[in-house]
Simulated assay, not measured.
Amino acid sequence: MPLACCAGVNLADLPAPLKVDQPQACEEVLAPIDVPEDHPEDDAIGAYLANRLALINAADEVDAGRACLRDQRFGYAGKGISR
């Protein structure tokens, strides 16, 4: 009998259960990475080191973005952040 009380409700009119404004912090963490330009006249070792540094920075930003998304997911799930 409890199901009969919902018979007059149109399910399409109900809001989505997770319709919320999510913070933009993760998008800021995952900003585009500056990649150094290489030119034929560049020193190969210098270009390698510059590209290596850009790769290290990119990997750090991806890790930070992954942690941000994980923490956001746990926060919205009501589980809090566990580290």
Rank of each mutant, 00 (worst) to 15 (best):
Ala25Tyr: 11
Asp42Ile: 01
Asp34Tyr: 14
Gln22His: 12
Tyr48Ser: 03
Ile33Gln: 06
Asp71Lys: 08
Pro40His: 05
Tyr76Asp: 13
Glu61Asn: 06
Glu61Leu: 14
Ala77Lys: 11
Arg66Ala: 00
Arg70Ser: 12
Cys68Thr: 04
Leu30Glu: 02
Gln24Lys: 15
Glu61Trp: 08
Asp60Met: 06
Val62Gly: 06
Val29Leu: 12
Glu28Gly: 10
Cys68Val: 05
Val29Ser: 05
Phe74Ala: 15
Ala77Asp: 12
Glu27Ser: 10
Ala77Pro: 12
Ala64Met: 15
Ile45Glu: 00
Glu27Trp: 09
Pro36Asp: 01
Ile56Ala: 06
Leu53Cys: 03
Glu28Met: 12
Glu27His: 10
Phe74Met: 14
Glu28Arg: 12
Gly78Gln: 15
Tyr48Pro: 01
Gly46Pro: 00
Ala54Asp: 03
Val29Gln: 02
Ala25Lys: 10
Asn57Ser: 04
Asn51Thr: 12
Ala54Glu: 04
Glu41Gly: 04
Glu28Asp: 13
Asp21Ser: 15
Glu37Pro: 04
Gly78Ser: 15
Asp63Asn: 06
Asn51Ile: 13
Cys68Tyr: 01
Asp63Ser: 07
Glu41Val: 02
Ala47Asp: 01
Asp34Ser: 13
Asp34Asn: 09
Gly46Glu: 01
Arg70Ile: 11
Pro23His: 14
Lys19Trp: 11
Ala64Arg: 15
Arg70Gly: 06
Ala50Met: 04
Ala47Lys: 00
Leu49Trp: 00
Ala25Cys: 08
Leu49Ile: 03
Glu61Arg: 11
Lys19Cys: 09
Glu61Val: 11
Pro32Ser: 08
Ala54Val: 06
Glu41Asp: 13
Val20Arg: 13
Asn57Met: 05
Asp21Tyr: 12
Asn51His: 08
Asp60Gln: 05
Lys19Met: 07
Asp71Phe: 06
His39Ala: 03
Pro32Gln: 06
Ala67Cys: 11
Asp63Pro: 07
Ala58Asp: 04
Ala31Arg: 03
Val62Cys: 07
Ala25Val: 11
Pro23Trp: 13
Ile45Ala: 02
Asp63Met: 07
Ala59Asn: 05
Arg70Pro: 05
Arg66Glu: 04
Pro32Glu: 05
Asn57Pro: 04
Val62Asn: 08
Ala54Thr: 07
Lys79Gly: 10
Glu37His: 05
Arg52Val: 13
Ala47Asn: 00
Ala54Trp: 04
Asp60Ala: 08
Cys26Val: 07
Val62Glu: 07
Ile56Trp: 07
Cys26Gly: 03
Glu27Cys: 09
Glu28Ile: 14
Pro17Arg: 10
Phe74Asn: 15
Lys79Cys: 10
Leu30Trp: 02
Ala59Glu: 03
Tyr48Asn: 00
Lys19Leu: 13
Gln24Tyr: 12
Glu28Cys: 09
Asp21His: 11
Asn51Met: 10
Asn57Arg: 14
Asp63Gly: 10
Asp43Gln: 00
Glu27Met: 11
Asp21Arg: 14
Gln24Ser: 15
Asp38Asn: 03
Asp60Leu: 01
Gln72Asn: 09
Gly65Tyr: 04
Leu49Arg: 01
Gln24Asn: 15
Gln22Pro: 06
Glu61Thr: 09
Ile56Leu: 08
Pro40Met: 00
Ile45Leu: 02
Ile33Thr: 06
